[in-house]
Write a protein that binds this DNA or RNA. Sequence first.
DNA 1: GTCCAGGATCGGA
DNA 2: TCCGATCATGGA
Length: 285
Amino acid sequence: MSISTEVKLIKIEKPIYFDLDETLNCGQCFRFKKYKDDFYEGVAKGAYLKIGVSKDGKYLLFEGASQDEVENIWLNYFALDEDYSKIAKNFCSVSPIMESIVNYAPGIRILRQEPFEALCSFIISQNNNIPRISKIIALLCERYGEKCKNNKDRYCFPSVDTMASLSEKELRDIGCGFRDKYLLDAAKKLKSDEINLEETKHMDIQKARETLQKIKGIGPKVAECILLYGMHRLECFPYDVWIKRAMNTLFPGKNHSIFGEYAGIAQQYIYHYSRNHPEIFEVEI
DNA sequence: GTCCAGGATCGGA
DNA sequence: TCCGATCATGGA
């Protein structure tokens, strides 16, 4: 009698406006890594997942996930329930430049990440680079996260209570530098319910921004990232150095209001395009 | 050795 | 209110 090694795959029809590489490598998340055979692996909401695309490009393949997890976690996480075709086309009508920006990576989607993980991730992101942000978060999870329910070799992002119990030294030891105090301040304010992320998620947007900025280490840009990536407030438009340069260069005299209620999605197209076309910012002499 | 990284904070003008 | 120095850390 042999043990079955058959891998269970769940297939879902892949929308046209969705691409794994573009979505997972556009700077919005830090925990999905390329796995062998062109699959990505990652963890969210307590569950581990390997995800890839069929060779004909027609199907998304969910490996290591139950039907229940796909329906209740992953379709939501990858925002596969949203219709991006209309949104993307509207952006294309803004200007020819915007059309080429969207067409460079039309498969980007804004993920629905967990609020606390997004909050910590973007506190860690300040004055930092993406490979190092990813490394710090990976160590946080390995050392202080619970094991995934469906994979005992992978770890969830730490809970608020666990984060609040850590010492500055423990956080320094995983490389988070001066941000240790910021993470502890955040965990403390959430644990005491001085700030409630579920309430913040549904607040008036300006009130939500102000609430998040009560936490040390969260300024305007980080708050905007938390709202966009962790609370799915798609009108939020984080202004980092790349976006500032891109707006000045490509949309002079304009601001993000030209992109309407889904400006945050436009921001992601622009950010990704700018990172991969730095030559557009070279000064002509 | 210097510079930079999906910034925010602090003190002094 | 605004501006510059400073904050850990590692890779280029």
